[in-house]
Simulated scan of single mutants.
Amino acid sequence: MVYKEAVDRFLEEINRKMYSDNTYRTYEIALYQYGKFCEDNKLDWKKKDTARKFVSYLVKGGYSPNSINLKISALSSFAEFCVDNEWLDKNMFVAMKVKAPKRLINYIPDETVDLLLSTIDDKYRPYIELMLYGGLRISEAVSVDSKNLYFDDNVLFCRVIGKGNKERITPILAPEEVKQRLSKLRKDDKITEGAVKEYLYRWSLKHGKHITAHMLRHTFATRAVQAGIPIEVVSKWLGHENLQTTMVYVTVTYERVKHYAKAVI
């Protein structure tokens, strides 16, 4: 049984069982990535060693343990389906799992941010900039219109309706030209959470990087803490109810300090 045919049969089965669109998409992406990895590296998709190499590739690619384990789970379900149909002798992903280290936030390195901003599609630019420069959640960013944005003493602020329908005010810490452009933003109903996530996924594949909407928000928070802004202020900007949730960004900056210290020694 060739890989593509097995995948098509498996996805038909998933579709027949009427799984949610998100679940179906998770399976589809994991299967596509595994197939492309095998094809690019001329590896046999049925081998346990190939599965291990794929997981190692994901780890080196910067995917979070949770994201990797989700892909492993999807691929393991596919492999079990193949075993049941006698296309495989054994499930090559069985009992495979990546351990999650102590939680550290994934922020985007400056050089990757520069690459993103220089290659981004203008259709998605304002929403990505709101997450990067304002720390908005993706659901909040796609809902913003010029009526939510205003200048006060040359600082651009955004009135955000966040979780639980709670309102907060957060500054947009962006270059002047970005602030001026965002202040004239007109909401596009065609730009949805799913559309932005899909765009970032395709951008990541094209450029060999790993960027998600939440990483943009993490990057905003990390930069704010590194700039010396009090943690309780950053917490309010992000809409965190618990200060402890924001404290993780202090850990991130400490890890970065250690990184640069080791580079000097």
Score class of each variant (00 low, 15 high):
residue 190 K to D: 14
residue 169 I to H: 13
residue 43 L to F: 05
residue 2 V to H: 14
residue 154 N to C: 08
residue 208 G to Y: 00
residue 83 V to Y: 04
residue 91 N to G: 06
residue 14 I to E: 05
residue 197 K to G: 03
residue 182 L to C: 12
residue 146 S to K: 15
residue 126 P to F: 03
residue 217 R to H: 05
residue 10 F to S: 04
residue 61 G to T: 02
residue 20 S to F: 10
residue 222 T to R: 04
residue 109 P to G: 08
residue 10 F to D: 07
residue 144 V to F: 04
residue 129 E to K: 07
residue 27 Y to W: 09
residue 231 I to V: 15
residue 196 V to W: 06
residue 246 T to N: 09
residue 30 A to C: 12
residue 60 K to D: 15
residue 145 D to Y: 07
residue 45 W to C: 05
residue 122 D to N: 07
residue 66 N to F: 10
residue 263 A to Q: 15
residue 220 F to L: 08
residue 82 C to Y: 01
residue 264 V to A: 15
residue 132 L to E: 04
residue 239 G to P: 03
residue 64 S to P: 04
residue 66 N to P: 05
residue 218 H to C: 01
residue 93 F to H: 02
residue 12 E to T: 12
residue 265 I to M: 13
residue 100 A to K: 15
residue 250 V to M: 13
residue 60 K to F: 11
residue 171 P to T: 03
residue 116 L to P: 01
residue 93 F to L: 01
residue 212 T to K: 01
residue 120 I to V: 15
residue 258 K to H: 10
residue 79 A to R: 05
residue 241 E to L: 05
residue 54 F to R: 10
residue 80 E to K: 14
residue 15 N to W: 02
residue 59 V to W: 10
residue 213 A to H: 00
residue 243 L to G: 10
residue 198 E to Y: 10
residue 104 L to R: 12
residue 252 V to P: 02
residue 206 K to C: 07
residue 151 F to Y: 15
residue 225 V to K: 09
residue 4 K to M: 12
residue 263 A to L: 14
residue 219 T to L: 00
residue 231 I to E: 10
residue 205 L to R: 15
residue 176 E to F: 11
residue 87 W to Y: 12
residue 162 G to Q: 11
residue 141 A to H: 03
residue 80 E to F: 00
residue 83 V to R: 11
residue 183 S to M: 09
residue 100 A to M: 09
residue 155 V to M: 13
residue 242 N to V: 08
residue 69 N to H: 13
residue 207 H to L: 08
residue 140 E to P: 02
residue 151 F to C: 06
residue 20 S to D: 06
residue 226 Q to V: 00
residue 46 K to F: 00
residue 234 V to R: 07
residue 157 F to N: 13
residue 67 S to N: 13
residue 148 N to G: 04
residue 97 K to A: 07
residue 65 P to V: 09
residue 73 S to K: 14
residue 123 K to L: 09
residue 49 D to A: 14
residue 154 N to G: 04
residue 84 D to P: 01
residue 168 R to D: 07
residue 104 L to S: 03
residue 212 T to D: 03
residue 174 A to R: 12
residue 87 W to N: 12
residue 204 S to Q: 05
residue 251 T to Q: 15
residue 111 E to Y: 06
residue 46 K to N: 01
residue 125 R to E: 02
residue 148 N to Q: 09
residue 94 V to Y: 03
residue 42 K to F: 11
